[in-house]
Design a protein around this nucleic acid. Structure first.
Lengths: 365, 365
DNA sequence: TCACATATTGAATACGCATGCAAAGGTGTG
DNA sequence: CACACCTTTGCATGCGTATTCAATATGTGA
């Protein structure tokens, strides 16, 4: 609807001084094809291959001819055609990035970080914003067509078919923040199990009695680890039951989950959420819909430590999962796997810690 | 080298029960090159050109041979090599997207929307997450190398050089939410001036007396329009002064700007922010650092209407700027310009409206 | 049945770059 | 001075697909 409204009423903004006709009209300046290595070669008086070598680090060119070539290239405004280069070298310097929850600030951070880190080695990102509902995005299947050097998935998992194809083609796959049972798929994540344990300990020390957990999807393997760490530590300490609900990693889903938990007969006085983004929804529901005081009536702890968690509107106590470190590991893994495509999958965990803010009662003493 | 190293120093990860040798050793399952049209042609008993035509919509192929070819392709798992295709057709089906403030949920929305809309026509996004400080990102200059079909900029502006190159090469540029004086650059934005006017009217009707405006950058043309609409409407209604500060469209910047305004001798009782994201910072500062009641002591109005504005932690009154509509217009423009590369720049405005929530006093009656 | 328009097909080539190979030039050693 | 050796260069070819052109097959009407 918004789209229809927008396009229907869009008005073209004309120059107010319309009596003066724009000079450019009629010049037509037809579209010019960009210069090629052959053009540069002609100008520099060398062969095309020489030009290619001048732009290939480590190739054999005399310093003198190289500068001559670079000058000619400069003069023509030459830029290597990466499509042609990719075709010849079978490497595109493009990394495909599939992501499902861009609205979650944590993943926005990941994307940003990835873009910067990859740019340092002259690589770029082909972005696939998949829908969380759709497991196997048809667009993703086309990844192979682009001859990407690697595939990074965040907040999604690679469908079996894709994983198989990539393995055959020697394209490394790394999943950030999603586990995988498939062979050949590397993963990077925060310390999920340990996070669950430490949050449980923190909340116990804070004197909480009834515990809730709001996870992502029932099938979320990563979330499962957090949940297991959380509930098992509690059980060891004598807590029998943990109320569990799932928010599908969405804001609305988490809000519904919060309503379920907080509206129950014996509502929890401590809730651990599988992501900060969901924790925000829980805070909203607890305060506005249930009129609860946080952390007086209920403590809420998140996971990720996104920048917003530090904003005073939320002031969320959380377990950190540093995006920069995750990304750094992911890129390291990619480079290893590119060097040895037939190697085996690599799994890494990045350390985090409890970041104490104001949304959970603090252990006394 | 990698291979040599691999065989020399690669250690086989042994099972602790090492009496059983790992099955996979020696199988080496070497990386296989993906099938090409020639492979498909051979299997189907036709020529390579026939295969190409089978995959080219509108090409001349007998229905019978086409199905034969498609079956062969299916069997081999053939996927067209888009690099090669791009080289031959000079079209990549790739759109470059440069964006500077991915942490701002509004732009995250734009990216997501763009990705979905472009995927509908089989196009993909090459992402450049530029730094807001750097006007001319060196990575961006390399856009031309990728033979992208178009360039979309959001929250950034194209440096002069790039704009020139793109114009010569016939690559359309569209800026979302940034004006441009450069010829040949199309733009899409919300109704900035009108938004400023209507917000001013709304606040006046709410009985506010002292007005503040927190803009993005001093040089932000788009922000300037909002500011002008705001201040001019106020002046017409007899308000002489508007306190102005700039937050550079960042959270921290906006927080500093809020401190400046709220800490002044006669602090405003109404603040209009050039983006929701900055408004969130203002709310934080007003409530926590100044202990102010919103909207009792001070009203805050944002711009964009991002999803978070509706969350009760903020409950922000704002002027909407529908991301979906902006994106739809941007793509329309791109398609027009791709069809006629030597045409002139197109400027569009997408309608918005005041979204009344709880962060500003409402006009009575 | 024949001339002719149409539909299909394959051979050949172009797209822009990388690279193996051999030729040419230069250096140093014996 | 002959030789081996290294550096620099150009030629030729390949990467996988699109497309032109000519050739063939098919169908139409008279």
């Amino acid at each position: 609807m918004a789209g229809a409204q927008g396009s229907a009423s869009a008005k073209v903004c004309r120059d107010p001084f319309s009596s003066v006709p724009p000079v450019r009209v009629g010049m037509k300046q037809s579209v010019v094809r960009p210069p090629t290595e052959t053009d540069v070669a002609r100008l520099a008086g060398v062969s095309q291959s020489a030009v290619s070598r001048a732009f290939t680090p480590g190739a054999s060119v005399a310093e003198q001819t190289r500068t001559k070539i670079l000058e000619a290239a400069q003069e023509l405004g030459y830029q290597p055609n990466l499509m042609a280069r990719s075709l010849a070298t079978r490497r595109s310097n493009i990394v495909a990035l599939a992501i499902s929850s861009l609205e979650n600030p944590f993943y926005a951070q990941v994307v940003k970080e990835l873009s910067h880190r990859l740019a340092e080695t002259n690589r770029h990102i082909l972005l696939f914003a998949t829908s969380p509902e759709v497991e196997a995005d048809p667009a993703l299947e086309r990844v192979l067509s682009y001859q990407v050097d690697a595939l990074i998935l965040t907040a999604t998992t690679a469908p079996f078919e894709l994983a198989l194809h990539c393995q055959k083609a020697g394209i490394p796959i790394v999943q950030i923040n999603r586990a995988s049972k498939l062979p050949g798929i590397s993963t990077v994540s925060g310390e999920n199990r340990r996070a669950g344990e430490r949050v449980a300990a923190f909340l116990l020390a804070g004197g909480h009695k009834r515990f809730g957990y709001i996870g992502g999807g029932v099938a979320s393997s990563i979330g499962k680890e957090r949940q297991d760490g959380f509930t098992e530590h509690l059980r060891i300490k004598g807590v029998r039951t943990v109320q569990v609900a799932f928010g599908e990693y969405t804001f609305e889903g988490a809000a519904a989950a919060a309503r379920e938990l907080l509206g129950s007969a014996a509502p929890p006085d401590a809730i651990f959420c599988a992501s900060d983004y969901m924790a925000f929804a829980v805070l909203d529901v607890a305060r506005r819909e249930f009129g609860l005081n946080v952390p007086g009536d209920v403590s809420v702890i998140g996971f990720d430590d996104v920048p917003e968690a530090g904003h005073s509107a939320y002031d969320l106590t959380t377990y950190s999962q540093p995006a920069a470190a995750l990304v750094a590991e992911a890129i390291k893994i990619i480079d290893i796997r590119i060097a040895r495509p037939q190697g085996r999958a690599i799994r890494r965990e990045v350390r985090g810690e409890i970041v104490v803010r104001g949304s959970a009662r603090v252990p006394i003493g």
